[in-house]
Design a protein around this nucleic acid. Structure first.
Length: 217
DNA sequence: CTCCCGATAT
DNA sequence: ATATCAGGAG
């Protein structure tokens, strides 16, 4: 897809403002090792980060690593992760992922996109987060529900599919911003550009946003 | 495309 | 009552 010079400039300004607004935003999930990060991100599907942290506080006190979780009774895992929703899928995925990590990688979470994608419950969004937060690697841009919504509202993509959205974002966002952009968009999505009632009246991106509602745009 | 799914905001 | 929440698999 072709992007005009003006569009690139508009998006550059948006990213600049986001950096000003959220200078030290960071991942909100709590974890002590790459495995706990991986599990937290799997559990975060269609669930608030706050609830994930409540659940993992208990979950990780009993099963802090891949070795222990691989041997945990599935019924107990289901009960522990139940409040996060999709609990049967999530319990099965984290146990099976733990087992694969023990058997194939000696208990260490793999550090490549290709290997991470073989784990159940892990697609590009989760893999991008783990690569960046656990290993400092930036392969792409993690596209979650907030990133998807804001990228579309801000006119950075017209796509619906997360993989296509990621590809569009990688075209217009400078590579050094690929890691942090996710957290800035999530933070702005939670505080201002909310799914139901976006607060365009107090949004500093208003003049740069093609979706802004109300007056003076 | 559908399904998985509990908890909260509106 | 319904939309939404750090998605992914079949």
């Amino acid at each position: 897809m072709k992007i005009s010079k003006g569009e690139r400039e508009r998006i550059r300004k948006i990213i600049g403002l986001l950096k000003e607004m959220y200078p030290n935003t960071h991942i909100a999930l709590r974890f002590k090792n790459p495995f706990q990060l991986l599990v937290s991100v799997i559990l975060s599907a269609q669930c608030t980060d706050e609830r994930v942290n409540q659940v993992t506080a208990v979950l990780f006190s009993k099963y802090p690593d891949a070795q222990s979780m691989a041997e945990a009774p599935i019924e107990e895992l289901e009960q522990l992760v139940r409040p996060t929703g999709f609990f049967r899928n999530k319990a099965r995925n984290i146990k099976e992922a733990a087992r694969m990590i023990v058997e194939r990688y000696g208990g260490r979470v793999p550090d490549t996109m290709e290997e991470l994608l073989t784990l159940p419950g892990v697609a590009r969004k989760t893999a991008n987060i783990v690569l960046y937060q656990a290993y400092g690697k930036v392969e792409g841009i993690a596209v979650d529900t907030h990133v998807k919504r804001l990228a579309r509202r801000l006119g950075m993509t017209r796509e619906e599919n997360p993989v296509k959205i990621e590809r569009d974002l990688m075209e217009v966002v400078p590579r050094q911003d690929w890691g942090p952009i996710t957290y800035m968009l999530i933070e702005h999505g939670r505080r201002v550009c909310k799914a139901r009632k976006p607060a365009c009246d107090i949004c500093r991106l208003r003049e740069l946003c093609p979706s802004a509602t109300g007056s003076s745009r």
